[in-house]
């Protein structure tokens, strides 16, 4: 048996992961442009803002497609770990997000809940879930 260094399955997987990373960075850039551009770059002019919105949506969609391609390239154990983590993240975000949103109504927090806090929660929840999943099948 000859194990080539140019492992086709692994190489293809790495290529898809890099593609996903590239689109994720592009989406972050597009989001930053939409968040700060109107105030600091074009003084709330409508046309550039609409352009930034369109760019953000198109790049975001491309990122989602890259994610789908990445998942389809994973082997079955990796896919199980990924989907378990995604499911757990969805549940945690749903439960904690709805609870967090009600905290202001209940006057337990003095500020308005921000969606960015949910993003942090999703990232942490997903990262921990993937870590635990990998440990379980190590």
């Amino acid at each position: 048996m000859d194990e080539s260094t140019d492992d086709s399955w692994q190489a293809e997987n790495n290529r898809k992961a890099k593609n996903l990373a590239g689109w994720s960075i592009a989406w972050l850039g597009g989001t930053a442009l939409l968040a700060f551009g109107p105030k600091y770059m074009w003084d709330y002019s409508t046309l550039p803002t609409l352009g930034a919105v369109l760019l953000n949506l198109v790049v975001g969609l491309a990122m989602v497609m890259a994610l789908v391609r990445y998942i389809s390239g994973l082997d079955e154990l990796e896919r199980k770990i990924f989907l378990d983590a995604a499911g757990l993240t969805l549940g945690v975000t749903l439960v904690c997000g709805s609870c967090y949103e009600l905290l202001e109504d209940a006057k337990l927090i003095p500020y308005q809940p921000e969606i960015s806090h949910l993003f942090y929660l999703m990232v942490i929840s997903f990262a921990v879930s993937v870590f635990v999943g990998n440990r379980r099948y190590k």
Partner: peptide, 20 residues
């Protein structure tokens, strides 16, 4: 490499932690 899966997957199957 031959099965087109990761080494982690082979290891998990061998140890009976994951059913293919």
């Amino acid at each position: 490499f031959e099965l087109d899966v990761s080494r982690q997957t082979v290891n998990a199957i061998e140890k009976g932690k994951f059913d293919p």
